[in-house]
């Protein structure tokens, strides 16, 4: 993979929607691959903050004018606003990268995917774990047959609770989807990427702002997965663990054991309000994700992650949340955009 974004898409006018936590991360990554954001769409009144985050971009507060000014759209807004923005981008024929979760219900996820299919333009959902070098390397080892057939996949994403204030969209589970939709969905998607379609989900969560959740998946292949997601850690803990046990061996990775740089400082800077893996010391997964998106837009690469994969992730998160609420396992219908 090169740092050159490619001949056509290098000149793409990127439109970023939202300049909050993920919007800021994406703006930096766009800059990093040499395709700085051209236009930003924010709520009226938020223009000054947008200029501070993205000084290189023109700032819009009207959707249609924004869509007219860009070639591709990157949606980094609160999760409950994705449907409306994605449908508008599809209608305008703009290839779109949308933060995860695609939507908060399976039906609306399918609506969005159908709209992009009808418009004939790519939709990529930012399941960025598929671009983290250790997760990519593990999958490639599995595909090479190094550990035989996957039998048990164990994934954990353990973090302190994001603290963006009680009034923020993030604190409202109806807007963020809560632990299963916001955090566990990364590993629900990855487990399915490794072990294939899921037929049953059983999950539990302790609930509340410091929720801790476990989901047990049964895959059609017979493999089983144990997915753990947590906002119960004290700040600044953010830890990921992955283990894939197969018929012939095991692959594992623990962020605690693979950190190449461990500062222990008397005076530490104020902690961030939301945890994010340290991506500064290896290939940057956000940049890889954006480059891949542009490659797909240019027709130079098959998508690593299809719209149907994003629907399946929403479906798994919904099943896990339902199982945790009802206390019973939830069977998964056939995944995909249709139905």
């Amino acid at each position: 993979m090169t740092t050159d974004a490619g001949t056509r898409s290098r000149s793409a006018r990127v439109g970023l929607v939202g300049t909050g936590f993920m919007g800021t991360v994406h703006a930096a990554a766009w800059r990093g691959i040499g395709v700085p954001v051209a236009a930003v769409l924010v709520q009226p009144g938020n223009e000054a903050a947008a200029r501070a985050t993205c000084p290189e971009a023109e700032v819009h507060s009207a959707l249609q004018g924004f869509l007219d000014a860009v070639d591709v759209v990157d949606i980094c807004t609160p999760s409950d606003t994705h449907v409306e923005l994605a449908l508008a981008a599809a209608k305008a024929g703009r290839p779109t990268l949308c933060e995860k979760p695609l939507t908060l219900e399976v039906a609306s996820a399918r609506d969005v995917v159908r709209a992009f299919a009808a418009a004939g333009v790519p939709l990529q959902v930012a399941h960025v774990v598929r671009f983290f070098p250790e997760y990519v390397a593990a999958r490639e080892a599995v595909l090479r047959g190094e550990i035989g057939d996957p039998a048990v996949v164990r994934l954990a994403r353990l973090s302190f609770a994001p603290d963006r204030g009680a009034e923020s969209w993030f604190a409202d589970e109806r807007r963020s989807g809560g632990l299963f939709f916001d955090l566990m969905i990364h590993d629900l998607d990855y487990a399915r990427w490794i072990a294939g379609e899921v037929t049953q989900v059983a999950a539990r969560a302790s609930g509340g702002p410091r929720s801790h959740g476990i989901a047990v998946l049964t895959h059609a292949s017979g493999a089983i997965s144990h997915i753990e997601a947590s906002w119960a850690e004290p700040a600044p803990v953010f830890r990921t663990r992955m283990e894939i046990a197969g018929s012939r061996g095991i692959i594992s990775c623990d962020s605690d054991e693979t950190a190449p740089f461990i500062p222990r400082l008397h005076d530490s800077a104020a902690a961030a309000d939301t945890a994010l893996a340290d991506v500064s010391l290896a290939a940057n997964p956000f940049e890889a994700e954006l480059r891949h998106f542009l490659d797909v837009v240019d027709g130079r690469r098959e998508p690593v992650l299809t719209p149907a994969d994003a629907v399946a992730a929403v479906q798994l998160a919904a099943a896990a949340r339902r199982s945790a609420g009802e206390g019973s396992p939830v069977a998964i219908d056939l995944v995909g955009a249709e139905g």
């Binding site: 039998a151 048990v152 539990r204 089983i224 197969g246 018929s247």
Partner: peptide, 25 residues
């Protein structure tokens, strides 16, 4: 007690489950 299991590891040598995940309430 809820549990899932499989016999993917060592399926060629043993007739019993070789992997299992249990969820207890």
């Amino acid at each position: 007690v809820y549990a899932v299991g499989n016999r993917i590891v060592h399926s060629d040598v043993v007739p019993v489950e070789t992997s299992g995940l249990v969820l207890l309430d």
